[in-house]
């Protein structure tokens, strides 16, 4: 995305930055293990998620916490009481609290990194004779592969834990409420299996589309003036007067609220699903 978008001659295609990077990776590797923009963003988010807490802890924890320590304690407390305790039973805490907390912190750092303009677009722009890389906002989580991979981990964890705690027969029996009349049993089995599979779609799509649509809507609001000027003439640049404040407002909303909320939701639902498999309700 070009900021500011003032020239009406260049094409405005906000979707391309989410699709084209697959075709021209930085490093070509076999088996589709190319290192492209998405991979670099993943590495950076991983580093962010590891280094920030590590540096705060290395600085020394005190009984009277500094502001950074207070922030870290708040994140831990949210992950422990709000996410893990709400979904997981006590015997599952030891293994799965680290997992859901990691999900929370990692997805949050992915989302946050997506709102910092970084020079990984591979395109350049000339400003006063100096060639600079174009800044661009892109989130690793605005990518179905990333969201789906995280979802698959939760999916397999759910069923493996369910079988481990309840046994194969006991676990699959627990999907069907006891005392179901025989005639509607086949229908109920189909519905239950479908609902388990729909979780795969809903969990991954929620994260993926929230971040993708968030970025697209910011890009569209910032660029709508130039887009309209391209077909309607230069007077339409006045639309920027509405578009830019809206774009900035949406940017602030997405970066502060939605980025954290989506990470929270993913982790909380993972905890609920895994907890539900360990201790089936019906």
């Amino acid at each position: 995305m070009i900021l500011p978008l003032l020239s009406s001659s260049t094409g405005f295609d906000p979707v391309s930055e989410f699709t084209n990077f697959v075709k021209d990776p930085y490093v070509n590797l076999p088996f589709g293990l190319d290192i492209n923009k998405g991979v670099v963003y993943l590495w950076l988010s991983g580093l962010l998620a590891i280094l920030v807490p590590l540096l705060i802890i290395r600085k020394g924890l005190k009984p009277k916490p500094s502001r950074s320590q207070e922030f870290l304690e708040m994140v831990y407390d949210t992950a422990y009481t709000q996410i893990a305790k709400a979904g997981l039973p006590d015997e599952g805490m030891r293994i799965w609290f680290p997992y859901v907390a990691t999900c929370f912190v990692f997805i949050w750092s992915m989302n946050l990194l997506g709102f910092i303009p970084l020079p990984f677009s591979g395109e350049t722009v000339d400003i006063a004779g100096v060639t600079l890389p174009k800044l661009q906002i892109y989130a690793a989580s605005a990518n179905l592969s990333v969201a789906l991979t995280l979802t698959l981990v939760t999916f397999f964890a759910t069923h493996i834990e369910g079988i481990r705690y309840n046994g194969v027969v006991g676990y699959f029996k627990s999907w069907i409420p006891s005392g179901t009349p025989k005639p509607i049993l086949p229908l109920l089995i189909v519905v239950e299996v479908l609902s388990q599979l729909v979780r795969l779609v809903s969990l991954s799509f929620r994260l993926f589309f929230n971040m993708l649509a968030g970025h697209l809507v910011i890009a569209v609001f910032l660029g709508v003036g130039a887009l309209m000027a391209a077909s309607l003439g230069n007077a339409a640049f006045a639309v920027h007067l509405i578009g830019w404040p809206m774009g900035v407002a949406l940017y602030l909303l997405e970066a502060t609220l939605i980025a954290a909320l989506q990470a929270y939701i993913f982790a909380a639902l993972s905890a609920l699903y895994i907890g539900g498999a360990i201790h089936p309700e019906h």
Partner: peptide
């Protein structure tokens, strides 16, 4: 509030199904 955010996210996701 915990339940509210969960419900909010579950409901909000439906927009993205339509968009998708």
């Amino acid at each position: 509030q915990g339940m509210m955010w969960l419900g909010f996210a579950l409901t909000e996701a439906i927009v993205f199904y339509a968009l998708g």
